[in-house]
């Protein structure tokens, strides 16, 4: 199977368990929603799937191109847009994208980047420092940065937060266009975002409802 696999994952902060025994997988072309109330551990689970947090038990693995391993070994195949993943305020979108592609050792697809910038109406801000952006614009650019290297797995944590109506519509149409070819994992509280996904993993349901 190509995609993300989480097996029996648990996480605790100190001795306090947040969740445990979570197993699911997201294969390419599939869209899975992480659903649950605040504090249930959606963002943490998403970070574990991305390789940004260590599970206290269980494992998160990635499998692409016949190879499988830890998520961070697949830098060129994973795109993440989450509140804890920020970009550089002093640098412009252009410089941020340049840094990220150089760091990944990948070639830039400038035409695709321009297309993304245009679809989020940021094309005239390509050389302005990110620090001057509004929070909605920043969120738009974070999505662009997560998409620019054409990842095979896309992990989104509340992707349309801070966005206006037009922005939300853009996110939705882009997600719809990627759905067939990408493994998509969305952590959200928003029913509209949940509706993009084929299946749902519920966290902390019983305790909180």
């Amino acid at each position: 199977m190509e995609g993300l696999i989480l097996e029996n994952v648990g996480k605790r902060f100190g001795p306090r368990p947040i969740f445990s025994g979570i197993s699911f997988s997201v294969s390419q072309g599939e869209a899975v929603c992480l659903w649950g109330p605040n504090g249930a551990g959606k963002s943490t689970l998403l970070k574990i799937a991305a390789g940004l947090a260590r599970p206290s038990s269980g494992s998160a693995t990635c499998s692409f191109g016949g190879r499988s391993g830890k998520p961070l070994e697949f830098r060129n195949s994973i795109g993440v847009c989450a509140p804890d993943v920020s970009l550089y305020d002093e640098l412009s979108p252009e410089e941020n994208l340049d840094f990220m592609s150089r760091a990944r050792g990948a070639k830039r697809d400038k035409a695709y980047e321009r297309e993304l910038m245009e679809s989020f109406s940021l094309e005239s801000f390509a050389n302005a420092p990110l620090g001057t952006f509004s929070s909605g614009m920043r969120q738009r650019f974070k999505l662009i940065a997560a998409l620019a290297h054409r990842p095979r797995a896309l992990l989104l944590d509340e992707p349309s937060s801070f966005m206006d109506e037009a922005g939300r519509a853009r996110v939705e149409s882009i997600v719809a266009s990627l759905k067939g070819s990408t493994a998509l994992l969305v952590a959200t509280n928003d029913p509209a975002e949940r509706a993009w996904c084929g299946s749902t993993v519920s966290l902390g349901g019983d305790k909180f409802c």
Partner: peptide, 16 residues
């Protein structure tokens, strides 16, 4: 502080 550490983790190898 600026939350960019995760961007580094996502894009860069540790030794780099």
């Amino acid at each position: 502080d600026r939350g960019t550490m995760n961007t580094l983790r996502l894009c860069c190898r540790a030794d780099h």
